[in-house]
Computed example of a mutant assay.
Amino acid sequence: MTLHKLGKDPESPEGKSPTVYYDDETDNYLLQGWKVLDEERLRQMDIPEHETVIEFPKRMMQFFPEVNGSGGPGSDS
């Protein structure tokens, strides 16, 4: 398995987070973001015990190959 870092949030202090990764073995994205701890927001979702919720800024969508048209890792183009 190889994770490919597709992009970090250019507006994040110290460039620590959020980050978009692509896993070439599972063909899935991994998202590093801010933990959602707001109980009111969490109550509005049906989250299974084995899952979690992160907050991810809209501006980070640019790093998904399907959005930016680059093809990127795992694409056939």
Rank of each mutant, 00 (worst) to 15 (best):
K5Q: 08
G72W: 04
G33N: 11
V67G: 08
I54W: 10
G7A: 10
D23H: 08
K35F: 11
K58F: 15
E40C: 01
V20N: 01
D24I: 06
P10Q: 12
V20A: 10
L3N: 02
D23P: 03
Q62V: 15
R59T: 15
G69T: 10
L42P: 01
L6N: 07
T2F: 03
L6F: 11
S17A: 15
E14Y: 10
Q62I: 15
Y22D: 01
L30Y: 08
L37S: 10
Q32M: 13
V20I: 15
G71P: 11
I54V: 15
F56T: 07
L42M: 05
D38A: 07
L31P: 07
Y21M: 05
G71S: 12
D76R: 13
H50Q: 07
T19V: 15
G7N: 09
R43H: 06
G74W: 07
I47L: 01
K58S: 15
P10S: 12
W34I: 11
E66K: 06
P18G: 11
I47Y: 00
S12N: 12
N28R: 09
K5C: 05
K58N: 15
M45L: 14
F56Y: 14
Y22E: 00
M61V: 13
Q62F: 14
E11N: 15
Q44I: 02
K8T: 10
F64G: 05
F64C: 08
L42F: 01
S17R: 13
D9P: 09
Y22I: 04
R43T: 02
R41E: 05
D23F: 05
D9H: 13
V53M: 00
R59L: 15
E39C: 00
D9A: 11
T26M: 08
M61K: 13
G74C: 08
K16N: 04
P48F: 00
E55Y: 13
E66T: 04
R59Q: 14
P73D: 07
M60C: 14
V53W: 01
R59A: 15
G69E: 12
G72L: 02
Q62M: 15
F56H: 09
S12I: 08
F56V: 04
D46C: 03
P48W: 04
V53K: 01
L31S: 11
R43W: 02
M45C: 06
E55C: 11
T26K: 10
Q44K: 12
D27S: 07
D24F: 02
L42I: 04
Y29G: 03
W34D: 12
E49I: 00
D9W: 13
G7F: 09
T2I: 05
Y21C: 03
G33V: 09
